[in-house]
Amino acid sequence: MLRETALPDTAPGDPATVAVPGTPGMRVLVVAETFLPAVNGVVNSVLRLVDHLAVRGHDPVVLAPSGADYESRCGARVQVVTVPAMRLPRYRQLQLARPTGDLTPVVRRLAPDVVHLASPALLGLAAARAARTLGVPSVAVFQTDLAAFAQRYRLPGGPAAAWRFLRTVHGTADLTLAPSSPTAAELRRHGIGPVALWPRGVDLEQFCPSRRDPALRAELAPGGELLVGVVARLALEKRLDLLGPISELPGVRLVVVGDGPQRRALTRAMPRARFLGQLGGADLGAVVASLDLFAHPGADETFCQAVQESLAAGVPAVVAASGGPLDLVRHQENGWLWAGDDPHVLAAMVAGLRDDPAALAAAAARARPSVACRTWGRMGDALIDHLRGVRAAAALPP
């Protein structure tokens, strides 16, 4: 019989306990290309998923290039099985699974009911092939735009090779989950399917307007300037250099939260910006809630969790009009869409908002309600439905 356990990250109307006692749990193999101690969107999503599976009475096991067994937030022990790892030549901080052999013996030993492939690449492909060999259904979550990554980092074969590889990976899985409707459409255009929509959840306690800190604001914007910020991995694909003109605006202070290979170059290019490094927990929640405006120039975001977190904190966002943020930001309602690639146009938009506090306040009032229904509890249950669906389909007679 399953034990009823309080579910974290619930909102009004969310179910408050685990599945009905007596409902059999699934053993879910979660395959992650990166994992702890790395800090990025994929790792955060995996941790949230694993926690939710455990809370709901399922048995998650993580297969990754790093990490160790740990205790989930509900007290369940989570097994982490590691594989050989490598580091990208131009991105030494990121530890990835290196090309591996046949994973069939590993998957057979772990005996999952279903395999969850988190942003699959090399490890995900090997695991998907092993699952297919063993007749275990699998779900592949598309989270990282590998084609854009290949273009920006000038990887061999470029975007065309990346899409060929992605078709191979996702074609081996039974279902692909896309985090946003623009991403789902892009996948279908490139011959990947079946595709279903699975957005990410947001922690409404960590990211909340009540965490706004006047003392922190006074430290970051001592002259009462408009406080504009971004939370991102400091990497080439985030295009944070386009925030340079914003950092020079009078009456504006730019705050950058995060770390990565571009930190030194960005610090030199934007000497007036405040770089706070990697933050988490309550510290991150306080910084985000203390902003007046969130600005994210990335054009290759499949979802952009940082934008959703800013909205949850009551902070409107100005974002590039492409990819995942299109599902989150409604122009002139809870934020603004920046079309094109001209950073001076982006700076002009921010300057206009600096001079129009009424418009900024109106968007701020609409920010949190626009994402309040997107709790991790609800998104986790939606994912479990997808996992159960592919498992049920696999059990049908041919």
Rank of each mutant, 00 (worst) to 15 (best):
G101V: 07
L254W: 01
L220C: 07
G285Y: 12
P21W: 13
V350G: 01
R263G: 04
C373T: 12
S72F: 12
F142Q: 12
T144S: 07
G191L: 08
R274E: 14
V46A: 07
A38R: 05
A185K: 02
D341H: 14
A121K: 03
A265Q: 14
A282E: 15
S119W: 01
T375C: 06
V307K: 02
A286H: 13
A306L: 02
G285D: 07
V202T: 12
R73F: 01
R87M: 03
R253C: 03
D292E: 04
S290T: 15
A215L: 15
G171K: 07
A218P: 06
T34S: 10
P24A: 14
L396M: 09
R330D: 07
T144L: 10
R263F: 00
R129D: 12
A68L: 06
L383D: 01
P199S: 11
V39A: 04
A232W: 07
R211I: 04
A358L: 12
V80E: 08
D102A: 05
P12E: 11
L88T: 00
T168F: 00
E301W: 07
A393I: 00
G25N: 09
L293R: 00
P261S: 15
A128R: 07
A362P: 00
A64S: 13
V62Y: 01
E309A: 11
Y91P: 00
L266N: 01
G277H: 09
T104S: 14
R263T: 08
L396P: 00
F303Y: 15
Y70Q: 02
V319F: 08
V307W: 02
R217A: 14
Y91D: 10
P112L: 04
V390T: 11
A265W: 05
L396F: 00
A11T: 11
A394W: 00
R200F: 13
R132C: 10
A161H: 04
G25P: 08
A235H: 09
A295H: 04
L7S: 02
W163M: 07
A68Q: 10
R366Q: 15
S310W: 03
V31W: 06
A269L: 13
Q79H: 06
E225T: 12
D174M: 03
A392Y: 03
G380D: 04
L226Y: 04
H170C: 10
T100W: 05
G171H: 05
R268D: 10
A339K: 07
A365K: 09
G244N: 05
G13A: 12
V31E: 03
R272M: 06
R164Y: 01
S370V: 12
R189T: 13
R90W: 09
T144E: 08
L187W: 10
A161W: 03
L122C: 01
L110T: 04
A273C: 05
A347W: 05
P156W: 02
H58D: 15
N334D: 13
R129Y: 02
E333T: 14
D342K: 08
G281A: 13
T17E: 11
Q93N: 10
P65K: 02
L242H: 11
A372P: 00
A215W: 08
W376N: 09
L146V: 12
G158Q: 09
L311V: 13
P297A: 06
E71N: 08
R239M: 02
L227G: 04
E309R: 15
L117T: 03
G57K: 08
W336F: 14
V43C: 08
